[in-house]
Amino acid sequence: MKTLDVAVVDDHSLFRKGVIQLLQLDPAITVVAEGECSADAIAIAEEYAPSVMLMDVEMPGNGPEKCLSGVLAASPNTSVLILTMHDDVAYVRSLVSCGAAGYMLKTIDHGELIAAVKSVSAGSSAVRVSVSRSTLAALTSTPEEKPAQAISARELEVLQLVAGAASNAEIAAKLYVSQGTVKRHLTNIYTKLGASSRIDALIKARAAGLIEPGPQ
């Protein structure tokens, strides 16, 4: 009997191994490869072209958008199912728009995970989403006005440099300010965007149209 080829990419080894064990309980699923970073995800797509790839959001290497694009470029028929702790509407919108076949929280149970894997592998045009009620409500509501006015011109400069993978020291040198000033700008940016990290800020800034797409 032909089985469903699945790959799992997550930088947390214990979680990754647990997911693999759960998947292998189903005789219709074969886990063909595993990885822990963006480079692994793309290499696995090139070598194995799995039917489904389970992928985390925050991993070493390129950001999730670039990683997802690389996976789909290497293996267009692979359905990528995002499996993450980030219950965030900006992440969902950004990654689904980049081609993710589904977006699931790591709090889902075994049955829902198996159902999601089989669902996205069937080539359905529907996107499989399992998030909180508040995030789901935000996804289906009319988008709020972009927060462009809340972000200053200097903060936009900092955001664009962050999008170019510049470190705090590099940003400080480029803008002729101290690293402390850069950190204050980043703190203000996180607060205004409701972000928890650099990558989160970039995803939300891009979703709001504040900065142009680019390397993370």
Rank of each mutant, 00 (worst) to 15 (best):
I82Q: 06
M104L: 15
E157C: 03
M85S: 05
V120L: 03
E58G: 00
M104I: 07
K66P: 00
A122W: 02
S121A: 15
P76S: 12
V127N: 04
A45Q: 09
R184M: 11
A39D: 14
D10A: 03
V129T: 14
S38P: 02
V129E: 00
M85K: 03
A7Q: 08
S38M: 07
E46H: 12
S134A: 14
P64L: 06
A45M: 12
T3I: 06
D5L: 05
V80S: 06
R184W: 05
E145W: 01
E46Q: 15
D87K: 11
L81F: 09
T107S: 15
V31W: 05
T107G: 00
G35L: 11
T140D: 01
I211K: 00
I151R: 02
G99E: 08
K183M: 11
A45F: 08
P64I: 04
L68Q: 08
A153K: 14
Q160N: 14
L159W: 09
I29R: 02
G35M: 12
L4N: 05
M1H: 08
M53P: 00
T142A: 13
T3H: 10
L193G: 00
T140E: 02
Q160S: 13
L202W: 13
A137Y: 09
E144Y: 03
E112T: 13
A28G: 03
Q216M: 09
L202M: 15
F15D: 04
G111W: 02
A116F: 06
T187I: 06
A122L: 11
S69D: 13
A205K: 07
L68A: 04
R154L: 09
M104N: 09
K118C: 02
Q24L: 13
R133S: 10
L83T: 04
P60Q: 06
Q216D: 07
L175I: 12
S79H: 12
S75N: 09
I171S: 01
T135Y: 00
E34V: 08
K118R: 13
L210D: 03
G111C: 04
S13W: 07
P213T: 11
G61S: 11
R198N: 12
S94Y: 05
Q24A: 07
V120C: 03
T187L: 06
D5N: 14
V162Y: 05
Y103T: 08
P60A: 09
S38L: 08
P64S: 13
T140P: 00
Y103A: 04
G123P: 04
A138Q: 15
E144A: 12
S51I: 01
I29H: 06
A39G: 05
R93Q: 11
A43I: 02
A115T: 14
D109F: 07
N188I: 00
I151L: 11
D11Y: 08
R16S: 05
G63P: 05
S134C: 02
E212H: 09
P76T: 10
A137S: 12
V96M: 09
A33R: 12
Q216P: 00
G164T: 03
V6W: 06
L113Q: 04
R93A: 04
P27H: 03
K192R: 14
G102I: 07
L156I: 15
V6G: 02
A166C: 12
T191E: 14
V131R: 01
K174I: 01
A207N: 13
N77G: 08
A101F: 06
S121E: 04
H110I: 05
S197Y: 10
A115E: 15
A138D: 10
R154E: 10
L175K: 10
N77V: 01
A138T: 10
A208S: 15
T84H: 08
V89L: 02
E145R: 10
V71Y: 09
R128N: 11
